[in-house]
Amino acid sequence: MAGPGNIPPSASDTGYRSLIGPLLLPTWAVIGIFMVLPVLLMAVYSFLTKEFRGGVIWDFTLAAYDQFFVTRGLFGDEPAQIEWTYINIFWRSIWQAGLATILCLLIGFPTAWFIATRPAQTRGLWLFLITIPYWVNLLIRTVSLKFLIRDNGPLNESLMAIGLIDGPLPLVNTNLAVQLGLFYSYLPFMVLPIYAAVERYNFALSEAAADLYASRWATLREIVLPVVKPGIIAGCILVFVPSLGAFLAPDLLGGAKTFMIGSLIDEQFKGSQGDWPFGAAVAMILMTLVLIVLLLYARAQTRGATR
């Protein structure tokens, strides 16, 4: 406990206390006006009535949400039933994002561990190698992947050349391609936080476990994973959340059957077939989902901190 004399100077009197207002004003103004306000407005839009040329009429209605969850037949005269079309798209997105998260974890954890256990001189270089692709334009990376895996692309050609397959594997426009795209897009997001956690890990814990007769893998399971769990959870969130709302990977690598939330939202704002209130409603539902995930994460973190 800090005694009265030990209250950290906390740079309390370096002179910025009186400037808090002016220093934070730009942040509040910019993010407030161009992000908070728009999201609130989007919430309002999801309750407005669609106008046919791709705009809205200011009449409040639940039509957009009704359209998402409920069907009354082709002509709207049948009894209300659950509309599965959009729920299925969400379900597919969640499933794809979840699978991408697990794949990223399976490859990302060993990678992060390996890098974090390199000697200090080479560690930076390994980390640098993992970081570069993260900074390369996502669109370009996705296009490159498409180029690589397309029917007569280098991957299929070389597999056929070595006689592993007879005809090209139809990868593009499949769930597998989208999955590969998500995995490829967000893999660095998994590696970096786990790396940070492993770097702080006290390896004497592993030695203590080994001393107490734990095998290598038992040590991993019983000691390492629980200790670096915060990093693993952070990595999973960083992969899952953007995967859920991904647009480029499903749009470029997938087809009609692999439709995900991102494309569904995008479609509502294109040209005259658009439906802004419906698009806003879908975006609201997506945001709610993400918020739930983040809240669960925050709760897990505070529980971990108080334990």
């Binding site: 993010i31 161009f34 992000m35 908070v36 306000l37 728009p38 999201v39 407005l41 989007m42 839009y45 959340v241 953007p242 859920l244 709302g245 647009f247 939330i261 991102g262 939202i265 995008d266 704002f269 802004w276 698009g279 806003a280 975006a283 997506l286 945001m287 993400v290 983040l294």
Partner: peptide
């Protein structure tokens, strides 16, 4: 906040705004 809201949601909200 900009890190937590999905990009596509920010896109929609900004366009609407």
């Amino acid at each position: 906040l900009p890190l937590m809201v999905p990009e596509i949601v920010i896109a929609v909200a900004t366009l609407i705004f």
